[in-house]
């Protein structure tokens, strides 16, 4: 069953620039799709468009169907219903993804409360449970901490816990490991991989790092300048890239000796 169906998505600014150009792809329930491309290729905008969260002064045309709901042109009310329930997101920057002035526990409690209607002690227990699930030690202490009192890796786990707390059908991860150091990055990928497999959750995983995408997804879409360049199984893309651009991407990933061995993707 198709969970997310994007047809001819085009994102334009009011001053006429086309940032995403006639993009089409789909994600089936439980499927994991990678979105690869250099910086500025429109990956983040694509994920924002999927949630109806494009910044001021940008508009989308085409069709985005998320779990049967048309996102393009949908009123805010319908979008609110879809968000969280059908799709949730983890962002690139762990520092800005959490409110600096709100205790971590409260930030996770909010989506949990919205979804489950739990209150008081039950809600607190659910928060601790959510933190445990992302393998955070001492969940009680972390729940009471402010974001600046925990490490970047821990913050990113908290952000993941927040997204999972909604129990979405689709998890959108926008470069969730880019800001982390190499060893933490590997752990985080491992965690995302296990958790989404356990839940049979579909994933739209954004990264400019081919090796990272290879680790978590089976299929990948390569983007350049807002357009789809190549689409296919990750191991085909890594092993036998058809397009020139993809080839450069693979070559540069090799050159940079990406922390996560590319060979694992073969």
């Amino acid at each position: 069953m198709t969970l997310l169906d994007v047809r001819g998505l085009t994102v334009r600014t009011t001053d006429g620039r086309t940032l995403v150009d006639d993009l089409s792809f789909s994600v089936a329930s439980g499927e994991r799709l990678g979105l690869i491309g250099e910086s500025g290729s429109g990956k983040s905008l694509t994920t924002l468009a999927v949630l109806g969260l494009l910044p001021d002064g940008m508009s989308a045309t085409g069709s985005i169907e998320l779990a049967g709901t048309q996102i393009v042109g949908a009123p805010e009310k319908r979008l609110t219903a879809v968000r969280g329930r059908d799709a949730a997101v983890v962002f690139q920057e762990p520092l800005t993804a959490l409110d600096p002035l709100m205790r971590v526990g409260r930030q996770i409690a909010e989506p949990l409360r919205v979804r489950t209607g739990l209150k008081g002690d039950d809600l607190e227990r659910a928060v601790a449970h959510a933190l445990e699930q992302v393998r955070l030690p001492e969940p009680e202490r972390i729940a009471r901490a402010f974001p600046h009192e925990i490490s970047g890796g821990q913050r990113q786990r908290v952000a993941l816990a927040m997204a999972l707390a909604c129990d979405p059908k689709l998890l959108i991860a926008d470069e969730p490991t880019t800001a982390l150091d190499v060893s933490v990055q590997a752990e985080m990928l491992e965690l995302i991989d296990t958790l989404v497999r356990e839940r049979e959750m579909a994933v739209l995983f954004v990264s400019h790092d081919l090796a990272v995408v290879a680790k978590v997804t089976d299929r990948a879409l390569v983007m350049k300048d807002g357009r789809a360049v190549e689409e296919g199984a990750v191991h085909t893309i890594v092993g036998a890239p058809r397009e020139e651009y993809t080839r450069t991407l693979v070559a540069s990933a090799r050159r940079l000796e990406s922390a996560l061995d590319l060979r694992s993707a073969r």
Binding site: F91, Q92, T96, A97, M102, Q107
Partner: peptide, 26 residues
């Protein structure tokens, strides 16, 4: 403009709660 607002919005937090919980304290 912060990601945490977007994250709150994607998890279905209402406007009033966004104002009271995130905007005013900040």
């Amino acid at each position: 403009a912060h990601d945490y607002i977007t994250a709150a919005r994607t998890s279905g937090t209402s406007w009033s709660r966004t104002v009271a919980g995130h905007v005013l304290p900040n």
